[in-house]
């Protein structure tokens, strides 16, 4: 198997290098990748949506269909992991669970220094996550980054304290609907644009809701709403994946 793998790998690598011989020079501002479409993104995006962070502008305005499905990917992964790990409690589960090692309920030693450190770190991390979301228009950031930071703040607490204690405050019954709510917010905005007469996710159509607003500002607000939806889903799903993975599905204990 190893010889076959080496052969395949060397073959693939050689073909890739051969294909790269007629690439344009790296860093050339006149290469095709940097001139056809991306020029227009750089020069037109700010006047279209008043969002200086061009990556956020493209992500949530020009290519927001992709981002909607990216959020769906996160939701799908959370649901799939839930399906795989959280075994149902019916007779089928008892048959499957028979080989499952019993969850060891050893009491975790409580470390006051760790707990205090996590307690101090949690609010600033949470706040930083919200800052990254809202300031994503002007600095590096956006929905996904904010969602990951928010999820990480909960994971920090779960590591410092006990998983069960955090699940008591942020239970499955809360983070599962929150994840769905994030995607619904995104898709709902798109459907709203449809109902108001424009194309799907065409923020221009929302101008009837706020008369007097300029086209660029409505796009800026549309981008923010969409990023909020993304943050909700990503934050909840990241914590949900952690809770399911670390406790092997039974939410009893963890790291």
């Amino acid at each position: 198997m190893k010889k076959f793998a080496i052969l395949v790998t060397v073959l693939v690598g050689a073909i890739l290098v051969w294909g790269a011989t007629d690439f344009p020079q790296w860093g050339d501002p006149n290469s095709p990748a940097s001139t056809h479409v991306s020029d227009r993104y750089i020069t037109e995006a700010y006047s279209a949506s008043h969002v200086p962070n061009l990556v956020s502008a493209i992500l949530a305005d020009y290519r927001n269909f992709d981002t909607m499905f990216e959020t769906t990917v996160v939701f799908t992964a959370g649901t799939a992991i839930f399906l795989i790990l959280r075994l149902p409690l019916g007779p089928l589960a008892r048959r499957r669970n028979s080989k499952h090692p019993q969850a060891e309920r050893h009491p975790l030693p409580r470390d006051p220094i760790l707990e205090m450190a996590c307690r101090i770190l949690f609010p600033p991390t949470h706040l930083f996550g919200l800052y990254v979301l809202t300031h994503g228009h002007y600095s590096p950031g956006g929905g996904f980054q904010a969602g990951v930071i928010l999820g990480a703040s909960f994971i920090l607490l779960a590591i410092g304290f006990d998983l069960r204690a955090i699940l008591a405050r942020f239970p499955e019954g809360l983070f599962k609907p929150l994840a769905a709510l994030g995607v619904l917010l995104y898709v709902g905005l798109g459907v709203l644009c449809l109902l108001l007469g424009g194309n799907f996710l065409d923020y221009e159509a929302l101008r009837v809701l706020a008369p007097g607003i300029s086209s660029a500002m409505i796009r800026s607000h549309g981008i923010l709403i969409v990023e909020c939806g993304v943050t909700l889903t990503v934050g909840s799903v990241i914590f949900g994946i952690y809770a399911n993975l670390v406790s092997r599905g039974n939410h009893e204990g963890g790291l």
């Binding site: 991306s38 493209i58 990216e70 996160v74």
Partner: peptide, 26 residues
């Protein structure tokens, strides 16, 4: 345009990173 790097690959790779994380989780 020549003063700013091409933002499009970054946008595409945000998606690819998220897809990668989802696959690793599953």
């Amino acid at each position: 345009a020549a003063h700013y790097i091409n933002p499009l690959p970054h946008v595409l790779m945000l998606t690819a990173i998220v897809v990668g994380v989802a696959t690793v989780g599953v």
